[in-house]
Design a protein around this nucleic acid. Structure first.
Lengths: 104, 104
DNA sequence: CAGCATCCAAAAGGATACTG
DNA sequence: CAGTATCCTTTTGGATGCTG
């Protein structure tokens, strides 16, 4: 829903737009445990394709939810770490877990 | 992401699948204030089309997040009310509002 | 390893017109 | 009023092949 992003302004819509998609929730959950590499995320997030993973990570990076650190070694090493903003999302994920285990 | 619904089983994925889309969050927010009619929701949820609203409401009804009450008057009157399961989602929305206003 | 580019299929969602 | 039906556009995401 790209067009709506212009209309949207309340705090919950902001949160939804910053997050972007369902994938972000799943990536966030993985990164709460700590820094992870691209390949680790690819394996941890069930069913995600490299393309979707890249797209989502870029979106999250652009929204200051995580930082991307590149170590120019051979082989290449890229790590993703949550920012404070990303870490603070933990409360929401936690409530979702509670809700999911209660009602799922 | 239909195919993933089969793989997915953790509580947070359950929550995400039950919710379905971004629209659900916005509809939920409206219904926390109390029962609303189709037209009221259509006006309250900025930018939603009747089709998207219908689809989302049907999905939420199928997942026991809300109930649909039809009053066969003229003109027709249909009301949507959150179930206990839907009401319980309030904690999540609340945390999202807090996050959104803090970081948005 | 960590991707990007390209192509393509599926799904979501908007617009419009019509109905009980 | 509260939708449904249809059509069509946009978006998402999978598959594949290639690269620094």
């Amino acid at each position: 829903m790209k067009k709506n992003e212009l209309i949207i302004e309340c705090s919950i819509e902001k949160a939804l737009n910053i997050i972007g998609s369902k994938w972000s929730f799943l990536i966030l959950r993985e990164l709460f445990c700590g820094t992870k590499r691209f390949g680790e995320l690819e394996r941890a997030v069930q069913g995600i394709s490299p393309k979707a993973l890249t797209d989502t990570l870029r979106h999250m990076e652009a929204n200051d939810i995580l930082v991307r650190d590149v170590y120019p070694t051979v082989p290449l090493r890229v790590e993703y770490t949550l920012t404070e903003k990303g870490q603070d999302f933990h409360k929401i994920i936690k409530e979702m877990k509670i809700w999911g285990s209660k009602w799922g």
